[in-house]
Design a binder for these strands. Structure first.
Lengths: 260, 260
DNA sequence: CGCCGAATTGATCTGATTCAAGTGCGGTGG
DNA sequence: CCACCGCACTTGAATCAGATCAATTCGGCG
């Protein structure tokens, strides 16, 4: 299945790339690049604990010293790939897809800048899903063994990783509740509000944004068919809750959406 | 809602309680008891990393020094309780239930002896679900702050916690796939096979076992109504895949169940 | 300009829910 | 010891939400 996501980013909010001295340190594989440091990264508040000292940040910079660019539709990793690193999204967005042996696919999440990828690979030593870029994206590579070492020395960092993993468990619990108990209408409303909240938390507009994924991918995430997703969008539009124009979404009445 | 689980355990497989010198050390709250040590626990292979030295086990015994008994239908913890410890189930079983603000309930998992409870409470510092005993049960209390300290010193233990959390993420991903893509029939089949596998891994029979939860709870876990669960049991019975007699389940044709 | 995949919309079908009427079993009290 | 009660479970019939099938329309791109 090819990935859609035709729209270009339109936000002028925090981008990951910065005018920062680049620490050149290529490491083998082609699509890896040297990268600006955590200590200077605009996403730091989101992917790292807030209370790190400059000293500790320097330690981090030692370990998280390369990034990787992934083109739209390409995989950052695939299920069964050996697990070595987790990834922090610097720019762009991804979907994670699990596949059943019978070919059935399910999208387990959409990740945007500041989110983390790969935590599910720790167990079993290999990736458990495909992570596919929804647009051209850049991730920071965080070698897990080295991260573990850091966590043994740096309490806030240790705690932060537990927090991240626990949050992911909680997020998935909510998604299970959504899939298990909500109507199609409620699922789509919840999905839009959740996206809105996350964009807002990252300095983008929470009221108007671009979907980087197709209706089919949304449906696959929400446990329904793309036609149903489309119908719900139309319904919300009729009810003046959202303005949906292809991939551009404008939330007109967040209150109302929440009450659905 | 009252919990059912009328049947008594009938297995003579590994039980948690053992004739081991009891390290008496009451700690405040009434329903806590001193407890046999990890170093002597039959569940250790399941809830702890295998490669611990006797020395390291002794350290664990220092920290995991109390248990708690929970009667059928009672809560080990409830959503919004302050998070302090995680729990390892020594004997018995639980369900974890998340509740939406509108009162909608969803069962996120069933846990049996050897499983861990409370990992989702780490983030936000408070519990995110109710953990309700499906039968009279006993858990080991693992104070999380102390566990974190141990993990900073004990590499295998540190890794083990990451593994456990990652496994939980993977388990929930599979459950999302189940909820998002499978028919009622497939969900129930998957549920039975999964339970079977887990019982087997703990030394119980994988072919015949007792459900400790009601049809309603199963339905709430699988995203369907109790009537549908019941119908699927009847269907499998007609097809000679399982023998379902109230809460007693005998799997006649695991192969066939898997093919559903 | 024309093509192709994505999205919308309508008509129909179906698996699961809902509603309703039993059945079976364990526990209680006479 | 048995009759009765309550609760979980089963089963059938009617209904409905969402899936499926099908026909356009839209929109980005070569």
């Amino acid at each position: 299945m090819q990935v859609a996501a035709a729209c270009e980013p339109r936000h002028d909010a925090p981008r990951a790339s910065r005018a920062v001295p680049i620490h050149v340190m290529p490491r083998g594989a082609a699509p890896r690049h040297a990268t600006p440091r955590c200590s200077a990264c605009a996403m730091r508040q989101i992917c790292m604990p807030p209370e790190l000292t400059p000293d500790q940040l320097a330690q981090l910079d030692e370990v998280i010293c390369s990034t990787r660019s992934i083109k739209r539709g390409e995989a950052l990793y695939r299920a069964a790939d050996p697990f070595q690193s987790i990834y922090a999204i610097r720019a762009g967005s991804f979907k994670t897809v699990v596949m059943h042996r019978d070919g059935r696919e399910h999208v387990t999440g959409f990740q945007i800048a500041g989110d983390t990828l790969g935590l599910d690979g720790i167990c079993g030593g290999k990736q458990n899903c495909d992570a596919i870029a929804l647009e051209d994206s850049v991730v920071c590579i965080i070698p897990f063994t080295q991260l573990e070492a850091i966590c043994r020395e740096m309490k806030p960092m240790q705690h932060h990783i537990y927090q991240m993993m626990s949050s992911e468990i909680v997020r998935e619990s909510s998604q299970m509740m959504l899939l298990g108990t909500m109507s199609a209408e409620q699922r789509v409303a919840t999905f839009l509000l959740n996206l809105s909240k996350r964009f807002k938390a990252r300095g983008f507009s929470g009221a108007e944004f671009h979907l980087r994924m197709t209706r089919e991918e949304i449906g696959c995430f929400l446990g329904m068919k793309l036609e149903t997703v489309s119908r719900m969008f139309s319904k919300f539009q009729r009810e003046r809750l959202v303005q949906a124009n292809g991939k551009t979404i404008r939330i007109e009445d967040a209150e109302g959406l929440g009450r659905v």
